[in-house]
Amino acid sequence: MPRPRCERCQRPLDHCLCPLIPSLDSRTRVVLLQHPSESSHALNTARLAALGLVNAQLRVGEVFDDLVELLQTPGYRPALLFPGEHAQVLTAYGEVDDRPLLLIVPDGTWRKARKLLYLNPLLEALPRVTLGAVAPSRYRLRKAPEPGALSTLEAVVEALNVLEQPVSFDALLKPFEALIEGQIKAMGAETFQRNHGTP
């Protein structure tokens, strides 16, 4: 029989993360487009980002039919958080009345994220933004495909910390860190060290 789950964070009730999830406001509107294969993943960091940000939304799917309306959200300028040859490194919002970003964040493995762009040509056409130098990922349970690769939640936190400085969005990482600690505890220190190196 499946363990009862929290309807909000989708974690088993005895590991509910809701008490750790903040409710942070941001000028930036964050829209997370999640590949369906990620939605049932135990470490669903996009869901944590959406739950912890008031001005965020999580969409699950491969093709998003209402992208035209979404990208025309009044008061925002859309940008895709995704590396690429012409991606601009994010910088803080200026003093002048700078329209905040409607930050579109694909969520999935690199292959699945690229597939989302391929299946939604409007996304492919958006101006791209990327992160500058980043701290190493705290995501100790997945091997990073390359140095500087972050989980979706970490990428969102880094982006908002840059855009909206001096405001900090690090509180979003609390449930993420608790989730990782819980997974490590469940697998046992020995197994963790064998599979993922020293904690």
Rank of each mutant, 00 (worst) to 15 (best):
L20G: 01
N55Q: 15
K112D: 14
R3I: 11
L160A: 02
A49N: 01
A42Q: 13
V162T: 15
P199G: 08
E146A: 15
I104M: 09
A178C: 08
H196I: 01
Q10L: 15
L58G: 12
L173S: 07
T73A: 14
E38S: 05
R140V: 15
L150M: 07
P136W: 09
D66P: 03
P175M: 05
R194C: 13
Q165L: 03
H35L: 05
C9T: 04
G148T: 09
L81E: 07
V60L: 08
D14S: 12
R3S: 13
G94V: 03
K115R: 11
D98G: 00
L141A: 08
P121M: 12
A46H: 02
L80E: 08
G108W: 05
L70K: 03
R140H: 10
P147V: 13
L116R: 04
G148C: 09
R142P: 03
N55F: 08
P12H: 09
Q10D: 13
P127Y: 01
V105Y: 01
D25M: 13
A50M: 06
Q193S: 15
T45G: 06
V30W: 00
L58N: 13
E177K: 06
R29Q: 11
L126R: 01
S23Y: 02
A50V: 03
K174D: 10
E164L: 07
L126N: 02
I21G: 03
L90P: 01
E69L: 06
F169K: 04
P166G: 10
Q183R: 14
L70W: 04
A155R: 00
C18L: 04
V68N: 13
L48H: 02
V68E: 15
F64H: 12
R59Q: 15
L126T: 03
S168W: 07
N195R: 14
D170K: 08
V134A: 11
Q193Y: 10
L17D: 05
S40E: 14
